[in-house]
Amino acid sequence: MSNSGQNPSPAAAEEARQIIKIIDLHKWFGEFHVLRGINLEVAAGERIVVCGPSGSGKSTMIRCINRLEEHQRGQIIVDGIELSNNLKNIEKIREEVGMVFQHFNLFPHLTILDNLTLGPIWVKKMPRREAEEIAMYFLEKVHIAEQAKKFPGQLSGGQQQRVAIARSLCMKPKVMLFDEPTSALDPEMVKEVLDVMISLAHEGMTMIVVTHEMGFAKSVAHRVLFMDEGRIVEENTPDEFFDHPEHERTKLFLSQILH
């Protein structure tokens, strides 16, 4: 991959295929206008960090991408498939888009291994043996293979989140969405999860990450988006974004999270 290094070149990303295209996206919760015209294009292999104040619609935006939330206006096109009420399309898109949640959302009644094989077996109709091989491969990758037979409740938060990442990877997604994956973790566990995400980034995975971990943004993101009140207010490379923010609101926000 040409763009998997530390210093990404936007030109390379430009050339690559558009994997996500969001055009004039609007969403309302009842009367409340949450997303007010989002435009975003993501190239294959591109890594995007989204930040912004609480309630600005970051979660809602990425949840629209795999239809956990339904949008009311505009278009979302994932890998050439447009999200609509067509159930077949929704299923196809969900197979290609993995999601990692703030609170892990592992299935507590299943072992770690069963958590991972569930998707491949039931959605991809893979034989159990093959699914388990894949699951073990990804568990190795997140350094947690020895816990395969345990239940989620027996693991620490950081371990659970790594399992959750592995669970998504087992579906071989083309895009990974992360919604504040480290903000429910104790500080000493944040690093182990970020390390997994960084190694994923180096393999060229397309990622959209909602996070306030600025170190992560600086080291792997191609672009940082700043959202406020349902809009993308500012968008830039990490270096420019942190060193020379343009908008007042961005400056204010950065001064708050960087103390």
Partner: peptide, 26 residues
């Protein structure tokens, strides 16, 4: 919790699979 449905959905499980494999057992 709602997160269980969301995790199941984002894996691509359909309604009946989600109910049978995730929600009802719990």
């Amino acid at each position: 919790p709602k997160g269980q449905y969301e995790a199941a959905e984002s894996l691509g499980l359909n309604y009946w699979q989600t109910m049978r494999l995730i929600v009802l057992p719990q």
